[in-house]
Computed example of a mutant assay.
Amino acid sequence: MIELKTPAEIDRMHVTGRFVAEVLTEVGKLADVGVNLMDLEHHVRGMIERRGAESCYWDYAPSFGRGPFRNVICLSVNDAVLHGLPHDYVLRDGDVLSADIAVSIDGWVADSARTVIVGTPAEEDQRIIRATEEALEAAIDAARPGNRLGDISAAIWEVARGHGYPVNTEFGGHGIGRTMHEELHVSNKGKAGRGLKLRPGLTLALEPWFAATTDRIVYDPDGWTIRSADGSRTAHSEHTVAITENGPVVLTRREDETPASKTGSAGRTSTKDA
């Protein structure tokens, strides 16, 4: 069942969203050459505990995972893009790091992801990160009352196609609110004008993610970490968005973030110090 949120409930989700944004801002600052992924994991654990929040990832056990997830943030490096299991890995110059986190505060959830470059950026890595950011902004712009769910999917697909990136449709966006995953799957590829009619009160996690040269994925032996099947670099951008009478409201926008252009012009530089 799709649950429409009241303005007051959206405000409560926004509280959670601001905290999620703070966490991802902090991760972006800390991600540096020589930093271990487990150091980032433990730092985020401390932030969640001090805020009195609850991780949506801890003990998460969907059908595709191997056992319950026993971390509070997904950290995916280079050709890894989704559900990266934090482990004993020291970041190197030029690594691409995707960080994804969902937490609950007072019963309301927000979910967001960003991709940064550690150390020296490569142009091709900057390009794919910008593409996911542009696709996310296009998806947000399409999340308006009267539009259809397919308009969001088509907006993401159009940006990907413009950049020449294939799109995987096995994992995408989703409904969100009282739990991390509510009704509605939001594919990153679709046709405009089709699907559910968007209404005020609908809250969605929109998350375009691309691999440079493939739409196929493989899993690590850990049963969680998802990689591009051909080892090509990846990127992932995500925001929690509320559809309101006045249009979309991004509940997880970071203070250090300049929204990328939907037309393909440069947005912010997605290096660690952006």
Rank of each mutant, 00 (worst) to 15 (best):
V23H: 08
H42F: 15
R130K: 11
R233T: 09
H174F: 11
F64M: 09
A205N: 12
E255A: 13
Y165V: 02
N246S: 14
W58M: 09
P145N: 03
F19I: 03
L37C: 11
A99N: 07
H185P: 00
N168C: 10
E124S: 14
W157R: 14
T213A: 10
T179M: 05
S98R: 05
A53S: 09
V20F: 05
P208F: 09
V81S: 08
V33P: 11
A242E: 03
I128G: 11
S104N: 03
R254Y: 00
L184F: 12
L40P: 06
D106F: 01
G67Q: 06
A229G: 05
V218F: 00
Y89N: 00
V23R: 07
H83M: 05
E207Y: 00
I243V: 13
S63P: 01
D141E: 15
R254K: 13
A143M: 10
G65F: 13
L85M: 15
L40T: 06
P86M: 03
A229E: 12
T214W: 10
P145R: 07
D230M: 11
Y57H: 14
H174A: 10
I217W: 06
H83V: 01
T115L: 08
R148Y: 11
R233M: 03
A31L: 04
H174D: 02
G46Q: 13
N168Q: 15
L91Q: 07
A138E: 02
M13A: 06
G193I: 02
C74Q: 12
L37P: 02
G264W: 07
G94P: 10
E54T: 14
R178A: 08
A212C: 02
G193N: 02
E137G: 01
P208R: 10
M180V: 06
L97S: 11
P248Y: 11
E182H: 03
A80N: 05
K272Y: 08
G267C: 10
K29C: 01
A122K: 15
E257F: 14
E41Q: 15
D106M: 01
G65W: 09
L196C: 02
G84R: 09
S270L: 13
L91A: 03
I156C: 11
L196Q: 12
P121H: 08
I73P: 07
R161N: 13
T213L: 01
R253Y: 00
V186S: 06
E9R: 13
V103I: 15
I152C: 05
A113V: 08
V167H: 08
I10S: 09
L97V: 10
G164W: 02
Y219G: 07
H174E: 00
G164C: 09
S153D: 04
V44K: 06
S265L: 13
E22W: 04
I48Y: 04
G162A: 12
V109N: 04
A192F: 03
E255F: 01
C74R: 03
A102P: 06
E245Y: 04
R51E: 15
G94I: 08
T203C: 15
